[in-house]
Design a protein around this nucleic acid. Sequence first.
DNA 1: CATCCACAGGAACTTGGGGGCA
DNA 2: TGCCCCCAAGTTCCTGTGGATG
Length: 434
Amino acid sequence: METVFDRYLTSGAIIENRGVLRSSYTPDRLLHRSKETNQLAAVLSTAIRGESPSNVLIYGQTGTGKTAVCKFIGKEIDKMNRRAAAKSAKGSKDPVTKAFQGNPVSYVYINCKIVNTTYGVLANIGNRFIKDWSEDVIPFTGWPTEKVYSSIKEKIDEQDGIILIFLDEIDQLCYNSGDDALYFLTGMSTTLKDDKVSIIGISNDLRFNEFLDPKVKSRLGEERITFAPYKANQLADILRQRAKLALVGDAWDEGVIQLCAALAAEENGDARKALDLLRISSELAERAGATTLVEEHVREAQVQIEKDVISQVIGDLPTQQKIVLLAITMEQVAGREKLITGEVYETYNIIARKLNMNVLTPRSISGMISELDMLGICMAKVISKGRYGRTKEIELAVHPNLVQKVLVQDPIFEELLAKGGLGLLRGWRQSRLL
DNA sequence: CATCCACAGGAACTTGGGGGCA
DNA sequence: TGCCCCCAAGTTCCTGTGGATG
């Protein structure tokens, strides 16, 4: 019996192995990143030899392979550990293995965009490292941070071997909770009996550590590795490597690869973007029933990605921020081109009351407008209107229909938008005057 | 040229919901 | 049960400010 899922579940005419096209997939061989991989391996190998490990800061824009290289290194460490374990029984004379046996290496990878508090980072390290603790000894909240710190320090002290802590998007950690966490972690290696903790910070913001405590800053930045953006031809190599693994042999050609690479190269050589283009265009092509991927699909994919990203961001906004966005959108639909903070607040106030939501203070709304600006959903420029004060000039940066389309899916806005759409504002204004 | 508007945006504090520990 | 902690979201209080206006 045929179901609606069949055509999507059976191996497609174009895609054979979808996972390979995701940017989170780590291939066996990283193309065009051997220099960086070797640099990192060289720094970390001093730790493996038992010398005191350096901390490393890795810089590079999004999609330059920072995370991929770190995950690759992680895989290699796993390999080494397995090799050392296998050979230990026979009393190996292999010098590499010998070095490794003396200093087994373990590592944690933490994404600081997700775990962005001092407590969270420390608890994560504790829960993943401590061998003789059963899982999740440290609760996700409850303990004093100091206690988390001292107990993991104590356990690490007892344990043999080197510990590598990969902190991806380390800048997010600093924005959110200052340098407390890094202070703890960089301090850990100095207060332990032996040096055996190394922090590998990954950031796409070159200036994130400017305001850190100088001591933390210098300890953290002992070694620096910078990742340059990929060139178009390098991106093409990467795409070709993945396409061979992921796509049906004769369903794609060089032109498609070149186009994906060229479009991504325009966006600061972002490999993630390149892979997304290839993956989405293959999916679009398959869904359209095509048997070969052509350049037209790639162009469609580009439009699609753009829209998806924005929809995703808007959909994930907290309710109050959605109300602010709706206020800006409705004003704009009602014909106002440039709003100021006060006007947005007034409209926000009306909508929030219509929805029976709490009405927040102007200070909070001001902050939310700035956030919408940072997310690229609206543009908010601080201007001075002289006698008439200093404020932000606010303008929507996305299409109002897109906002409506996304917000209508939220049950909170469903009724309101289904009834009157974005044009309700004038009616409300008039009824308020009467 | 000082004034003063309408906020910007930092910082400390509060609230409410998660939890631990004795 | 009471007192301790963590954390995010929001509030309160605050000082700062570009430039049209009188």
